[in-house]
Design a protein around this nucleic acid. Structure first.
Length: 426
RNA sequence: GGAGGAAUGGCAGAGUGGUCGAAUGCGGCGGUCUUGAAAACCGUUGUCCGCCAACCGGUGGACCGGGGGUUCGAAUCCCUCUUCCUCCGCCA
């Protein structure tokens, strides 16, 4: 959420930048400014009258002690009239505030000046590529076929147990998952991230704090009996650790990493995008989250990108880094880099990480602030996060790219974790 | 799941209807003293939304777990939710 103060003081700039994000209803901005003016006027009036009430209430106490009940009653009468007016004003104030807030929630984050305009994936900018795209051997199979042949992932069994999109990993498939999680966590911790193992269910406030609620409500699994949501990413619980917190500037940066299962309803997805591991309802992911001083948050973003790049390289996967255009970026992000790896048998790029700077957009919702030494006022911190990494598509790419007539070769770096260097047919 | 108790400022802990945003202690910050530090002493010490001045600052309102109510007036009384503690039951 943008702060009302910023919108008020930067109307032109806000309107300009929102164009890049393809924001469809710019009139909202002027509505917001108007409502804010109304709100402030109402507050001044209500506060003035309340002030009169507070002062005269003190007099009542004094009069009572003196025994002047008549004088006290006179003031009481006046105050009940004042009270009525205050209640009226407060009612309008509340209404105006609610409207204002509702509109404010509809305004996406402003893009960083470097964000290219555009409508979709086609307008994204390829920043860097690495590794060489493998030429699939004759008879190379997509990972869903390999999964069956090697008996390491059972999609049908998942359907039996739960439903589509809940794969069951078996034997060396399960071991590979475990190895990847362990490997990513080790690498992240070595890079200075503190490991967190958070709850997988969160309450409404948390969903709101990171921006999943209210707009992306339908994308999360919901448990009505307790009013909990299953997390779509570790970002939600980990970032919410810092909700309603005022940090010292010395505490920054804060770097956390967390492995969690992630749950996404993925309503509306279909077709080749959802085959096999390409898109599932439950998956494993290791996330990195940072809280940064606003002056250095973009340097932190670059660090995160380099870190994720290192992970992909260590896994020897062909990759490319893409800067998202305004139209493809998420509601909350100011700048996003996607990582894609190439899956040889499918012949397509699969997104495996998304690294974003949210600047103060999330922090404003979260009330996540920090105080500079000697400063009185706390300031909003910047939040960033990224996947390091999401497992399913990494697994898909490893399987497809590393298939040989003998079996699926485990990337060198993972072998100390798996304890085997090739997955053979049973 | 059942029965009781509790929730106050960074922490501890007073405050049971009216000058209470809240005593006191600790911690933090500033100062005196000191070559420096400690001790001692003095001062200061939250958050949010406004208004005026817009450099310092001044000023109004709100906030004592959340929400609602009683009252001219609530940290204080009532209702409700949440959380924590104790006891019982169940259990990985």
């Amino acid at each position: 959420m943008l702060t009302i103060q910023f919108i008020r003081e930067n109307r032109e700039k806000v309107l300009e930048l929102l164009k890049i994000k393809n924001f469809q209803t710019p009139a909202i901005i002027d509505n917001i400014i108007d409502l804010d003016n109304d709100r402030r006027n109402l507050q001044v009036k209500a506060n003035d009258i309340q002030s009169e009430i507070n002062n005269t209430n003190k007099e009542i106490g004094i009069l009572f002690r003196k025994g002047d009940t008549e004088g006290a009653d006179r003031i009481k009468e006046q105050n009940s009239l004042r009270k009525e007016r205050v209640l009226d004003l407060e009612e309008s104030l509340r209404k105006t505030g609610d409207e204002l807030r509702a509109l404010l929630l509809q305004v996406p984050n402003l893009p960083h000046p470097s964000v290219p305009p555009g409508n979709g994936a086609a307008d994204n900018k390829i920043v860097r590529e690495g590794g060489s795209i493998p030429v699939p051997g004759k008879g190379a199979l997509p990972h869903w076929d390999l999964a069956k042949i090697y008996g390491i992932i059972d999609f049908d069994l998942g359907v039996k147990l739960t439903g589509g999109g809940f794969p069951v990993f078996k034997k060396k498939g399960a071991a590979l998952q475990r190895a990847l999680i362990h490997f990513f966590l080790d690498e992240n911790v070595a890079a200075g991230y503190d490991e967190i193992l958070p709850p997988l269910l969160v309450n409404e406030e948390s969903g709101f704090g990171t921006g999943q609620l209210p707009d992306k409500e339908g994308q999360m699994y919901y448990i009505p009996s307790d009013n909990f949501y299953l997390i779509p990413t570790a970002e939600v619980p980990v970032t919410n650790i810092y909700r309603d917190v005022i940090l010292d500037a010395d505490d920054l940066p804060i770097r956390n990493t967390a492995y969690t299962a992630c749950f996404r309803r993925e309503a509306g997805s279909y077709g080749k995008d959802v085959r096999g591991l390409n898109r599932v309802h439950q998956f494993d992911k290791v996330e990195i989250v940072r809280i940064e001083h606003p002056d250095v948050s973009y340097r932190a973003l670059e660090e995160m990108v380099s870190h994720v790049e290192m992970l992909v390289r260590k896994l020897e996967l062909p990759y490319r880094i893409v800067q998202l255009c305004g139209g493809d970026m998420s509601f909350t992000s100011a700048l996003t880099y996607d990582f894609e790896v190439y899956a040889a048998a499918q012949g397509r790029w699969l997104e495996v990480s998304s690294v974003s700077n949210f600047e103060s957009f999330q922090a404003n919702r979260l009330k996540l602030r920090f105080r500079e030494k000697g400063d009185k006022k706390p300031r909003l911190a910047h939040t960033l996060n990224g996947s390091a990494l999401a497992l399913p598509r990494i697994v898909a790419a490893i399987m497809e790219n590393n298939q040989t007539p003998r079996g699926i070769v485990v990337p060198e770096i993972l072998r100390s974790y798996t304890g085997f260097d090739i997955i053979l047919k049973d």
